[in-house]
């Protein structure tokens, strides 16, 4: 971790009040996003990956949410200390976000053109005509055919893949330094997914922006990220360069995850390797390591104490017994 990182998250903890009690959705998470890099954040539902992303955008509804501690610095400026009015200038201009379901992110009663022109003019001094030209240019860049016609259409008139491309065009229209993509292809079909991911990667190269890619799909991470974080139960448990993460995963959870995903194999397996048990309830977390109950390696120490993140060559890992699995 260097001081000149584009985004620097330190000791971030976020809680939500629910009917059943207070849930800590993100617990003491620290990481950096370097200029121009693609960082993957992977984990299963409820692991805190989306909440972390929303915190960077300052889009956590408060209440019920509350940022308990930590800092989020963009080019050294602490976003948590900014008033909402200044944050609004940063959103869209410096950091943009695209969501899993573009239909809910686009306004159904305005045309694509209206929404794009608004976003562009919000951050750049431009008249409507030039903003419109810029919107057409962006739609062309994301591979939308006949963009000037599309501008007059409403979100429901577009297919899912097309809507996600409109979202990307809109998110990139002000040239952000960081794009947060939360499961951008999960709602799309495989063939469309491939189109959209290729679009994101090529635009990233053109614009030299950094991308934070949040997904549950280890395949998507492997194909597009240089580095990836693995989250479990609100905590960061492993952080490593992608190749190393897939070749020499250090945390038993990462290892289990990589083994248990069904993948196209030459030889079909009789049974798939599994991670036994289920994710613990965030309201009733064990005192020690949160993975201990499901971990084949867990010792007394693991059940009593939480393992800190330690450096192991190129990897940061939160485990008392990291490294190659013993089978």
């Amino acid at each position: 971790m260097t001081s000149e990182a584009l985004l620097s998250v330190r000791n971030l903890s976020i809680e939500f009040s629910t009917e059943r009690g207070v849930v800590r959705a993100v617990d003491d998470v620290s990481f950096d996003v370097e200029h121009g890099e693609t960082l993957g954040i992977v984990g299963e539902s409820g692991c805190g990956k989306t909440v972390t992303a929303l915190a960077v955008m300052q889009l956590i509804p408060m209440p019920p949410g509350r940022i308990v501690s930590g800092s989020i610095r963009l080019n050294g400026q602490d976003l948590l200390a900014l008033p909402e009015r200044q944050m609004r200038n940063i959103r869209g201009r410096d950091i943009s976000m695209i969501f899993q379901e573009p239909m809910t992110a686009l306004n159904p009663v305005f045309t694509i053109g209206n929404q794009m022109v608004d976003v562009i003019r919000r951050h750049q001094p431009m008249d409507r005509a030039s903003a419109r030209r810029r919107a057409i240019e962006m739609l062309e860049k994301v591979g939308i055919p006949i963009p000037d016609k599309r501008l007059n259409e409403y979100p429901h008139q577009l297919s899912g893949g097309m809507r996600q491309r409109v979202m990307i065009a809109m998110a990139l229209s002000c040239g952000p330094k960081l794009l947060i993509a939360d499961e951008p292809t999960t709602a799309l079909d495989v063939t469309t997914q491939a189109q959209v991911m290729e679009q994101i990667v090529s635009l990233q190269e053109d614009y030299g922006m950094a991308v934070m890619l949040i997904t549950h799909d280890l395949g998507v991470i492997a194909e597009s990220c240089r580095r990836a974080l693995v989250m479990y139960c609100g905590q960061l448990i492993e952080d490593a360069p992608t190749e190393r993460l897939y070749e020499r995963p250090q945390h038993p959870y990462t290892q289990g995850l990589l083994r248990s995903i069904p993948r196209i194999r030459r030889q079909r397996l009789e049974t798939l390797p599994v991670i036994e048990g289920t994710v613990p309830d965030l309201l009733h977390l064990p005192p020690g390591c949160r993975f201990a109950d499901r971990c084949p390696r867990a010792a007394d120490e693991c059940r009593a104490h939480q393992p800190p993140l330690i450096d192991r060559e190129l990897t940061r890992v939160a485990c008392f017994y990291p490294g190659a699995r013993d089978d």
Partner: peptide
């Protein structure tokens, strides 16, 4: 095309 579009969980 379907087969080729599946993301493979292996960076290599």
């Amino acid at each position: 095309a379907l087969m080729s579009a599946i993301p493979v969980p292996d960076p290599k």
